[in-house]
Design a protein around this nucleic acid. Structure first.
Lengths: 140, 140
DNA sequence: GTCAAATTCATACTTTTGGCTGATGTGCCA
DNA sequence: TGGCACATCAGCCAAAAGTATGAATTTGAC
């Protein structure tokens, strides 16, 4: 960021210098002012595009950081083992019925676990719970 | 892309017109040429930044994360721009109503987009769509 | 200017999910 | 032994989500 601004500053100064040079040396009397202005516009448009891209390009952080569940957060939220299992299956796209079948319990049970999960994750929808859990690094 | 270029063209034309107007009306004799040139440089730098960001909007946004959307898979699945927006918002835990409000359309529209998405992602639930989309690296 | 794709919306119906309340059984532990 | 966390289940209702179908508009590409 700082570097970009500095480079931009130098580039701008260089351009201005160049234009000044051009202006006083040969061209300003040979070519129309419109053309000169157009040149400035063109050059600074290009410079603007470059600077804009530089300034908004963010660095890539921790590329392939192996995922590790944040047990601290898990404990902090008081999510039980069974609840976590349900959370996992929800995040994999299973319905309550499917989860119930997988865990050999009734859908009522899953609903209860889910409801408790939502309360602990401050969510009101399973998609929100997934999003939240991901933020907290308790699921992938 | 095409739209951006067109808008840029118009903005440029408008700016040129404005400058011309200014030039012939009052300022060109009251203020130094350097200031005038500086103004042009400033305006077109800003325009350049804007155009640059517009033209590379997707890439810029995605570079901010250690993740790159798999546009190949996106194309392969034939997911449209609007559908992708909906997918994104779904994955962030928003309800159809919330998404509709955000995109200024009706919930019917969101439902249609979602249904098309599910078909393309071979999913029958939004949680499944999220899971699937993550696997395909088209969302984070 | 035409044509296909994309976007928008509606209606009607079914399924899934979520909110709430209450209840039972088990193991732990102070 | 009473309290507590956990896991289990039920029933009811409402809200949200999903399915199906049809249709009008807009847009983009050729």
């Amino acid at each position: 960021m700082r570097k970009t601004i500095i480079i931009y500053g130098f580039a701008m100064a260089a351009l201005v210098g160049l234009l000044k040079l051009v202006e006083y040396k040969y061209l300003i009397r040979d070519i129309p002012l419109e053309f000169y202005i157009g040149l400035v516009a063109l050059l600074f448009t290009a410079l603007g595009i470059w600077a804009g891209l530089r300034l908004t390009r963010h660095k890539v952080i921790d590329l392939s950081a192996p995922f590790e569940i944040d047990t601290i957060n898990l404990q902090k939220l008081g999510i039980s083992k069974r609840e976590y299992e349900v959370l996992e299956l929800i995040s994999r796209g299973h319905s309550n019925q499917e989860i119930a079948d997988k865990l050999f319990v009734s859908t009522s049970t899953i609903k209860t676990h889910a409801a408790n999960l939502f309360a602990k994750l401050d969510a009101s929808r399973r998609t929100q719970a997934i999003s939240r859990a991901k933020e907290l690094h308790i699921i992938q």
